[in-house]
Design a binder for these strands. Structure first.
Length: 918
RNA sequence: GCGGGCGUGGUGAAAUUGGUAGACACGCUAGACUUAGGAUCUAGUGCCUUGCGGUGUGAAGGUUCGAGUCCUUUCGCCCGCACCA
């Protein structure tokens, strides 16, 4: 009986679907285990072989946990709001919901073919009203909350109001905007609602504000910092410029410290943790106020090195700093204006690409040194960023490389601060050394820093401060295909709709482009207003809104009273294992932690962190093939001869290439412009293609579709092969050639159970060697699964099946079927059923290994001298180490091995190797 | 520049965490069988050498009875971030 993967896989996929085999219960006495994949955006291109890598890995783990006695939650859904569907809608007029629906159907059918054990009863889609109902609800909770620094958690805004009523702004101790005004309790009492609302907006965890944002004209929307790469939009690659707009923001900065601290509690890779730490960017230092000479103006700077304050020889403001125009002297006005204009013309991209060029301008104004009273020239320079700190720095050329370069360029003094440190050619940035000025003379770094801060505080000129790089996250998008805000406006002031009015449904529009007046697409919607006629918010939420809490919805996906019941949340707690790509390091993975902490503060979720363990699977890359066209002709020259010509390398579809050699007829038929192609081949008549490993993408014609693999080799082969390819976390190129190895393995395994006539499993008693093979496999595979070393597990299966060739014994083959089932579930079910069992193998207990089968009776010890193998000797394992030693000394080969040297010590390593120390 | 990671055959990779380097698989070579197939099976395959043997984990040192693994220096590659004061 042949192994027929097509029938077997179809049969069991149907069985699993009909029996809801993988449905998880919210009410179980078993311990819970939550295995989550990062849900995909269903793009039009469908899946390629790289996508399922993480899904297969998590599926193996989920299946293993079911076997070992856990109630496993393993759900899947779709991050369904997003730009491509909207772009498609703009071009074709087809509603994004239809595009999305089609893409989801395609994804689902592809996923089903791989045999993944998802609980599809719990599927979520972020674009469905019953889901975004709760995204809107969370938004309202954030709006009605503030971050209390005394309690160190988010609280209801009413608490803040009570405090403000009692003690004015000084009583607040809350995370707030920098420009939050000072006011007394009496002031507060005298304010009207509008004024109070304006003030509360400065405390709320989501708030409307005029912010400088990353505006992408090509996409017609704003982007978050993590959606901008090198000054271009991540999606589409359009230029991005800075622009001021009225936007909703999320006060994620309030959680900066807790987001940092939480990293120590979770099992994530160092690289992701470091990325998040860097993104949050905590730096400890001081803020100092400097007066502008001859005026009543002053400005604040932030420095991490208050100890260097005696080395300040100039100040630098960002060109965009509001004070620049006020303090510039008439004589310098022209130069400064020219510089500001030049800077604003340079795109973000240019500015970043060109970090070594020093530029700036003198404002003509001077600041006063708080300790010495010296006049310090104030410059502007684009190396100071408006968006970080206060957009102003005190420049200490002797202690900072950038200040040093700037000082050199403009001929400014470089004043030493440390004793005997050479600053003649570069800044001395290390923190060792002894200070030479004033009240810190003779002090070291720590003392000097403390003294300077203390003195500044005493003078009310500054204070110790912790600065974060993290910015509040912009939450408005000028798009159609996203969650509408539950917000309306009255006299220009935003108000939340009542929770009973949720969900606010996304209205129909006749055009998906911005309106003529530049309003977002929702400006086209008819009657987009409340019952009372107040206008609704026209922006929609960004992509990360829906993905910041979807893992909670899976716990209780059909609840229409709450986002999830507290019973469900308390049972499932958090995600035990999260598998996904590392590209979300500073986006999704940070936002989700932020929302989760907020929901925790408000008492809705029991855990502080959402994802206990995170594994980042590597990317599967494509191997692109190239042909070389001689410029200006339709003649293609083979790899080996291309250097003799001026050629252009062109991608060619990998399916036309086999073993580097091009199917020339197929190539001519591939695209009309190549129909008349001519070839200069190698001497053997073959056309050899160039090769390069790149990301899989349609435009590079290097995509391998999993459907093709599933049809030709089977889902079980695909699963095994993807795991066999290499360590899960590494990126690696896809090579279809190697797949015969695992495919052959499955056929061999099949033959253990079936011969030509059918099932051939017997009830014979297994031999000791057979049991040893089996138990070694059980041990190895269990250890591998728990450490996600799936590639070596697959090898272990191959070895075992080779060892067990010709063994048709039930006592061996039954546990073997269970062992393979997480990896190759279809064939495992088939074997299990053939052996006369009812029901799915999923419910079968995972075998445990018995050490007694692994213990050797005798062992061939390698005998080593000076780390080199000298001879092998067989000894009985019942011998004690002393007896072994005696036997070795008596061995006749010892003479040659030690060349007569005295044996000082006999070391037995791991009971396996004998090392003679001479 | 900073952060994370990596460097082992022709290729993807293993190595019990300091203990016989190259498991397993691809590829390649030879052979068997054959109703000629991109099937199956057998043997071989790090490098040098006819052989004995020698040598070998990017390079150079060090610690150790023993180093792919630990330490120092150095070279190279990949990923992420990038004027953050």
């Amino acid at each position: 009986m042949e192994y027929n993967h097509i029938e077997i896989e179809k049969k069991w996929q149907k069985y699993w679907a009909e029996n809801h085999t993988y449905a998880a219960s919210n009410d179980s006495s078993l311990p819970k285990y939550y295995v989550l994949d990062m849900f995909p955006y269903p793009s039009g291109a469908g899946l390629h072989v790289g996508h399922p890598l993480g899904y297969i890995a998590s599926d193996i783990y989920a299946r293993y946990r079911r076997h070992t006695g856990y109630n496993v939650l393993h759900p899947m859904g779709y991050d369904a709001f997003g730009l491509p569907a909207e772009q498609y809608a703009i071009q074709t007029g087809q509603h994004p919901a239809i595009t999305t629906e089609e893409n989801i159907a395609r994804y689902r059918s592809q996923l089903d073919k791989i045999g993944l054990s998802f609980d599809w009863d719990r599927e979520v889609r972020t674009c469905m009203p019953d889901y975004y109902h709760w995204t809107q609800w969370i938004f309202i909770q954030l709006y009605n909350s503030y971050y209390d620094c005394d309690e160190n958690r988010a609280m209801k805004i009413e608490h803040l109001v009570a405090k403000l009523e009692k003690g004015g702004s000084d009583a607040a101790h809350a995370a707030c905007d920098d420009d939050t005004p000072y006011f007394t309790a009496e002031d507060w009492a005298s304010y009207d609602d509008k004024k109070r609302n304006e003030i509360l907006a400065k405390y709320r965890l989501t708030y409307l504000s005029e912010t400088e944002v990353n505006w992408c004209p090509g996409l017609g929307t704003v982007l978050a910092n993590d959606e901008v790469k090198d000054g271009l939009s991540e999606r589409g690659g359009f230029p991005v410029v800075r622009k001021k707009m009225l936007q909703w923001s999320m006060r994620i900065t309030a959680y900066a410290q807790r987001l940092l601290d939480g990293l120590d509690m979770i099992d994530w890779s160092d690289s992701i943790k470091e990325s998040q730490r860097y993104w949050i960017g905590r730096s400890q230092g001081a803020s100092v106020w400097f007066d502008v000479d001859g005026t009543d103006k002053k400005f604040e700077i932030f420095t991490t090195r208050p100890d260097t304050i005696f080395g300040v020889t100039f100040m630098t403001l960002a060109p965009e700093h509001p004070l620049v125009r006020e303090i510039t002297t008439p004589a310098q006005k022209e130069e400064v204006e020219a510089y500001i204009t030049a800077t604003s013309m340079r795109s973000e991209r240019e500015r970043m690409a060109d970090v070594t060029r020093i530029s700036g301008a003198f404002t003509g104004a001077y600041a006063i040194h708080p300790f010495t009273g010296e006049r310090i020239p104030i410059y502007i320079g684009d190396y100071v960023l408006a968006g970080y700190g206060t957009g102003a720095v005190m420049a200490v050329p002797s202690g900072d490389t950038r200040d040093y370069a700037f000082a050199r360029h403009f001929g400014i003094d470089i004043k030493p601060i440390l004793k005997d440190k050479d600053i003649s050619s570069e800044a001395y940035t290390a923190k060792d050394g002894t200070y030479i000025h004033d009240f810190i003379a003779g002090d070291d770094y720590t003392t000097a820093t403390a003294k300077v801060i203390e003195k500044l505080e005493g003078m009310h000129r500054g204070r110790g401060k912790i600065q974060y790089r993290l910015r509040d996250a912009v939450f408005s998008r000028q798009r159609y295909w996203g969650e509408p805000f539950p917000v309306y406006y009255k006299d220009g002031v935003p108000y939340m709709l009542g929770e009973d009015k949720l969900p606010v449904l996304l209205p129909e529009v006749d055009k998906y482009l911005p309106t003529e007046s530049g309003e977002p697409p929702l400006g086209h919607a008819k009657d987009w207003q409340t019952e009372e006629g107040y206008p609704m918010e026209l922006n929609t939420m960004p992509g990360w809104a829906g993905s910041s809490w979807y893992f909670l919805r899976y716990m209780d996906p059909h609840n229409d009273k709450e986002f999830a019941s507290s019973e469900a949340l308390n049972y499932w707690q958090d995600v035990d294992l999260y598998i996904g790509g590392s590209e979300h390091a500073t986006g999704h993975l940070l936002y989700a932690r932020f929302w989760h902490k907020f929901l925790h503060d408000m008492g809705y979720v029991p855990t502080e962190e959402p994802f206990k363990k995170l594994i980042n699977q590597g990317m599967i890359l494509g191997t692109s093939a190239f042909v070389y066209r001689i410029n200006g002709t339709n003649t293609f020259v083979s790899e080996g001869k291309k250097d003799a010509y001026q050629t252009t390398a062109l991608h060619v579809d990998v399916s036309l290439v086999q073993n580097h050699s091009l199917d020339m007829e197929g190539f001519k038929a591939w695209r009309p412009e190549y129909a008349t192609a001519e070839f200069i081949t190698e001497d053997d008549g073959r056309y050899i293609c160039g090769e390069e490993v790149e990301k899989m993408s349609k435009s590079k014609y290097n995509v391998v579709n999993p459907d093709y693999i599933v049809e030709n080799y089977g889902a079980d082969t695909l699963r095994l092969y993807e795991m066999f390819l290499g360590p899960l976390e590494l990126s690696k190129p896809w090579k279809t050639e190697g797949i015969n190895g695992v495919s052959g393995f499955l056929k061999k395994m099949w033959k253990l159970y079936f011969d030509r006539d059918g099932l051939c499993v017997t009830d014979e008693v297994p031999t000791r060697d057979e049991l040893k093979s089996l138990h070694r496999l059980i041990k190895k595979v269990r250890e591998d699964i728990e450490s996600f070393s799936y590639n070596t597990s697959v090898s272990a299966f191959m070895i075992a099946v080779n060892d067990l060739k010709g063994c048709h014994k039930r006592a061996i083959l039954e546990p073997l079927a269970v062992l393979i089932s997480p990896f190759a579930p279809h064939i495992a079910e088939e074997l299990w059923e053939a052996m006369g069992h009812e029901g799915s193998i999923t419910r079968v207990e995972y075998p445990t290994h018995d050490e007694k089968y692994l213990v050797e009776t005798s062992f061939e010890y390698p005998v080593m001298v000076r780390g080199k193998l000298r001879f092998k000797a067989e000894y009985d394992l019942s011998m004690s180490i002393e007896e072994v030693e005696k036997a070795i000394r008596a061995d006749e080969r010892i003479e040659k091995a030690t060349q007569g040297a005295e044996i000082k010590r006999v070391v037995v390593v791991h009971g396996k190797i004998i090392n003679l120390v001479i």
